[in-house]
Simulated assay, not measured.
Amino acid sequence: MRRLRVSAGLLVATAAMAVAGAPMAHASGNESPQYWNPICLAHGSQNWTVDGGTIPVPTEQLQYGNPYGTADCVEFLQALLGIPEDGSFGPQTNAAVRSFQQANLVRGYCGPVDGIVGPRTWFCLMAQN
């Protein structure tokens, strides 16, 4: 079982989002994610606003073979993509990211199809969940 260390600022932000009615993912792993994942966002986040909607997205950029991606954010990404969560950005995750990006090119702010999960892809993934 994982333990979560939460700062006072993160607790205030979490409480504010809960009061505002924003859906949140549970912190313990395999639950269905929504807009917020406190474990991943604790590593850093920024607000992204598109078409009048603002969502905090992770600042962590993920890509295939990236040794710097935290397992927490990769697991959150995998949950958003609906694939098995192992915390490793391997071939299956890479294929799922590219497929998601390709399917969402019509939404102009979601591209390009490069397999890199930066703010645009995070926003699109989180906005649809």
Rank of each mutant, 00 (worst) to 15 (best):
M1C: 08
R2E: 07
R2G: 06
R2N: 10
R3W: 04
S7M: 08
A8E: 05
G9T: 04
L10E: 04
L10D: 02
A13D: 05
A13Q: 02
A13S: 03
T14M: 05
A16F: 02
A16S: 12
M17R: 03
M17F: 07
A18W: 08
V19R: 09
G21L: 12
A22S: 14
A22K: 13
A22W: 09
P23K: 12
H26Y: 14
A27S: 09
A27T: 06
S28A: 11
N30M: 14
N30W: 10
S32R: 15
S32M: 15
P33G: 13
P33A: 12
N37A: 08
P38E: 06
I39G: 00
I39V: 13
C40E: 10
A42H: 02
H43G: 13
S45C: 11
Q46M: 15
N47Y: 09
W48M: 15
T49I: 11
T49V: 13
T49G: 09
V50A: 07
V50K: 04
V50W: 05
G52I: 09
G53H: 14
G53F: 12
T54D: 13
P56I: 09
P58V: 04
P58A: 11
E60F: 03
Q63C: 13
Y64R: 01
P67A: 10
P67L: 06
Y68D: 11
T70E: 07
A71H: 02
A71L: 04
D72Y: 00
C73P: 08
V74W: 00
E75N: 15
A79R: 02
A79D: 09
A79Y: 01
L80R: 06
L81Y: 07
L81E: 07
P84R: 13
P84C: 15
E85A: 13
E85T: 14
F89K: 00
P91T: 08
P91N: 10
Q92R: 10
T93C: 12
T93A: 11
T93V: 12
N94H: 11
N94R: 09
A96S: 14
V97S: 06
V97P: 01
S99K: 07
F100Q: 00
F100M: 05
V106Y: 03
Y109N: 06
P112H: 02
V113Q: 02
G115R: 00
I116H: 01
I116T: 05
V117S: 01
P119R: 03
R120N: 05
T121I: 04
M126F: 13
M126W: 10
